[in-house]
């Protein structure tokens, strides 16, 4: 095998590995979304039914519902990062014509996203670190607060990873566009 072929084969293995990882990760996200959506809904319905029908004050349902919702919010945000589903003002992108300009634009957007996602990750890390210094708990449930804060880390790290992915993609199509022209 030539050196180029080896590199290509290695690249193929890497992409294959990443594809499998992405599939497993997405499955896990879907499972998380289904479970948390169910908990958010059922906790509130239970609260109302117990209060209205049985006159029984079931404790901690708001807390449980909010805890599940935070995981739901962030899992949804990760999915949006993965599917490029975040809201965009696409005036500029829509006005670009050449494939080279489009790829360059994608590269810039992905690079800026990566930088900003790094800040996001830093802020989340600071929140968690401070939470270690001054631990809190969720009243009534008596669960440590970081359990509710952890999904923010998931969102920030995923945003970084997908921004990196988009950068690589944009760089690849940029080189392709350069070769073509």
């Amino acid at each position: 095998m030539t050196a180029a072929a080896v590199t290509q084969a290695r690249g193929g293995i890497l992409i294959g590995f990443l594809t499998i990882f992405d599939r497993i990760f997405t499955r896990a996200l879907h499972a998380l979304i289904l479970a948390t959506s169910l908990i958010v809904t059922v906790a509130l319905v239970t609260l109302v039914v117990c209060r209205y029908v049985f006159n029984y004050p079931v404790a901690g349902m708001h807390e449980l519902s909010m805890l599940a919702a935070l995981w739901l919010y962030m899992a949804g945000a990760v999915l949006a990062s993965r599917n490029n589903g975040h809201l965009v003002v696409d005036f500029l992108a829509g006005s670009l014509r050449s494939s080279r300009a489009k790829a360059l634009h994608q590269l810039v957007v992905a690079a800026l996203t990566l930088i900003i996602a790094c800040f996001f990750a830093l802020w989340v890390w600071k929140m968690l670190a401070w939470g270690m210094k001054r631990p809190q708990s969720i009243p009534l449930l008596q669960i440590p607060l970081w359990v509710a804060q952890l999904p923010f880390a998931l969102a920030a790290l995923s945003a970084m990873a997908y921004a990196l992915r988009d950068m690589v993609r944009a760089a690849l199509s940029l080189t392709r566009a350069s070769k073509e022209s």
């Binding site: 959506s37 809904t41 989340v124 804060q149």
Partner: peptide
């Protein structure tokens, strides 16, 4: 930075906000 994201966290950790995901769902 110790409280920057913590404040954001508190704003999302809200009962009233639950109407948003539930009505979308």
């Amino acid at each position: 930075l110790n409280t920057l994201m913590l404040q954001g966290f508190r704003s999302l950790n809200s009962v009233i906000l639950l109407a948003l995901p539930l009505f979308i769902l």
